[in-house]
């Protein structure tokens, strides 16, 4: 258990291991917070419940403030290292949120947007926020504990943790309220979806990777078996050298429809 805890904490410790990495981590955190804040802000026009809207507005402003705090601290540390090359070095894979930007389906920065609020509905949206903030609180606590030697950054995390606790609290209160209003099933379903989504997502991601590896293996085997006669045929067929003259085709939409 202790060993597992040590290994688990090691990756968080790495994030603060040297000044350059520290700057990268802070900037990565700043970006996440700012994106989350802007995302929640974009949901506000869709929220009918005025009390919820007020809390979400404060939540969004908190996230933006966290982003500012992280970013300002990163800037401060950067000034101490004017020749730092970290601005163009990619952060650790774990902390590099831009790796998800390669796929529009996995854009981690837009999840709390207005569009998704409309799609998921208020209960599921709040449940997702609740689970996310609870996890954030846990993770930030871990980082907080690792920063005793850096009082400034330690203080920033202290302030952020306070806000995260409020975020967990108000979202939890709304869920309790809806449960008391007889929407127990919906709340339970929403929380279950929120919890499973994390796990499911992780399983689906991993199985996608496994599928890729299996695919490569099948093709590799095929290459050295069924492909051989076609490989010989290709070696016999002449490669085209010199000028080739495209076949004149009709220059109308019929040609445009063709994928060949």
């Amino acid at each position: 258990m202790i060993i597992a805890k040590f290994i688990f904490n090691a990756r968080h410790r790495r994030a603060w291991s040297n000044p350059e990495r520290k700057i990268q981590t802070l900037e990565s955190f700043a970006q996440t917070e700012i994106d989350a804040g802007e995302s929640i802000l974009s949901a506000l026009p869709y929220v009918d419940n005025p009390r919820l809207r007020k809390h979400l507005e404060r939540h969004a402003k908190d996230e933006l403030e966290h982003g500012y705090l992280f970013s300002a601290q990163a800037q401060k540390l950067r000034k101490l290292q004017p020749n730092s090359s970290s601005i163009y070095k990619k952060p650790d894979k774990l902390y590099n949120l831009s790796r998800f930007k390669t796929s529009t389906e996995l854009n981690s920065h837009d999840f709390f947007s207005g569009e998704n609020y409309e799609k998921l509905g208020e209960i599921t949206y709040v449940a997702m926020l609740n689970i996310a903030e609870a996890k954030a609180e846990k993770v930030f606590s871990k980082h907080h504990q690792l920063l005793h030697d850096d009082p400034e950054t330690f203080k920033i995390f202290e302030r952020i943790l306070k806000d995260e606790r409020y975020h967990v609290s108000y979202t939890g209160k709304f869920l309790t309220e809806w449960t008391n209003q007889g929407k127990t099933k919906q709340v339970k379903k929403a929380l279950s979806f929120a919890k499973k989504a994390r796990l499911l997502n992780s399983i689906k991601r991993k199985s996608s990777k496994v599928g890729e590896k299996i695919g490569y293996l099948i093709l590799y085997i095929l290459y050295f078996t069924a492909i051989i006669p076609f490989a010989f045929a290709s070696k016999i067929s002449r490669t085209k050298k010199g000028w080739q003259y495209p076949v004149k085709v009709s220059q109308d939409l019929k040609q445009g429809h063709s994928q060949y």
Binding site: E212, G215, Y216, L219, Y220, Y223, F224, I227, I228, F230, A231, A233, S234, K235, S237, T239
Partner: peptide, 20 residues
């Protein structure tokens, strides 16, 4: 496809990645 086949057997890696 034609290029990878004509470079058999050196193109195994390229073939599997491309075909996938």
């Amino acid at each position: 496809l034609v290029t990878h086949l004509s470079h058999f057997p050196r193109s195994s890696k390229a073939f599997s990645r491309a075909m996938f």
